[in-house]
């Protein structure tokens, strides 16, 4: 919990995964710290805090953004989706399912950022080529897999989603 020592807090309202939250927050608190620390929704990860690794990717008003370089107050009256929004109950989202079946993750720390970036990609391009996948995922670092299984997973996910 970020304690207000500067008496500078603003009241913000934002929707996270369909739930409206109203909180007081210091202007300097990053969106990812707010979501993880204040709201306790911890699926979004912090890998670098300087906008390079993509682990903190969330969907902001329908666009993937890096929540480590955005402030929570900037998200006032906006809507955010995190990885927790993907699966419905027990059922994995087809992208999650495809990552699982293709060993598209090892430690899983980068995974939420990849999943949401892929969700955005497939919403715009239901049948991406290898080159397009590389292009779109070039802002996400995975240090474990070597990416090949991630590319396979994206292609599989595209098939699953086209079948739906």
């Amino acid at each position: 919990m970020v304690q207000d020592t500067t008496n500078n807090s603003r009241l913000i309202k934002l929707t996270v995964n369909g739930v409206l939250y109203e909180r007081k927050v210091e202007p300097r608190v990053t969106l990812v710290d707010f979501i993880r620390g204040e709201l306790g929704i911890t699926g979004t990860h912090v890998g670098c805090e300087h906008g390079v690794c993509g682990a903190c990717t969330v969907i902001f008003d329908g666009q993937p953004i890096r929540s480590c370089i955005m402030l929570a107050v900037q998200a006032d009256s906006h809507s955010v989706q995190t990885v927790e929004s993907m699966s419905s109950g027990e059922q994995l989202h087809p992208i999650q399912q495809a990552f699982w079946e293709n060993f598209g993750l090892q430690c899983g720390f980068c995974t939420p950022g990849f999943l949401l970036t892929v969700q955005d990609l497939l919403s715009r391009n239901p049948d991406p080529t290898d080159t397009e996948i590389r292009e779109e995922l070039s802002g996400n670092i995975c240090r474990c897999t070597g990416y090949q299984s991630i590319i396979a997973a994206v292609k599989q996910a595209a098939i699953y989603m086209r079948q739906e």
């Binding site: 911890t42 990860h45 699966s87 060993f103 995974t111």
Partner: peptide, 24 residues
Amino acid sequence: TSILCNEQIPLLRGEGRYIDDIKF
């Protein structure tokens, strides 16, 4: 056999419990 890793299911859901997710 390439058995799938069940331990990855929570990680896929964003339900992993890494050190920074633990809070008191």
